[in-house]
Amino acid sequence: MSATILATALAIAQLALVLAMAMAVVRMLRGPRAQDRVLALDALYLNCMLLLVTLGIRTGSVFFFEASLIIAMLGFVATVALAKFLMRGEVIE
């Protein structure tokens, strides 16, 4: 019973997260300006990180947590560097 509830909720959650990633990709490809694409990339890595956490729940292994932590850290640095680039034209002055 509890396995059925958890498996159904996990399937719905993963489907919702994959659709969210797809919509972020649509915005990234369509976005009229560079800042829209950077914002969509930010949303994309966040959704990917959440998808990895749900994958960790599904497989019952804690190793996906480390992968999602690395994605969160690298995504933060990437978005900050891209915002700096949009503002200044170069990342490190």
């Binding site: 509890s2 969210a20 919509m23 969509a40």
Partner: peptide
Amino acid sequence: AIPIAALLLIGAGLTFIGSVGL
């Protein structure tokens, strides 16, 4: 199992709504 499933659905649903807005 019931609160875990509810939290999963709330989290994924809110993320989905955020991406629809995006």
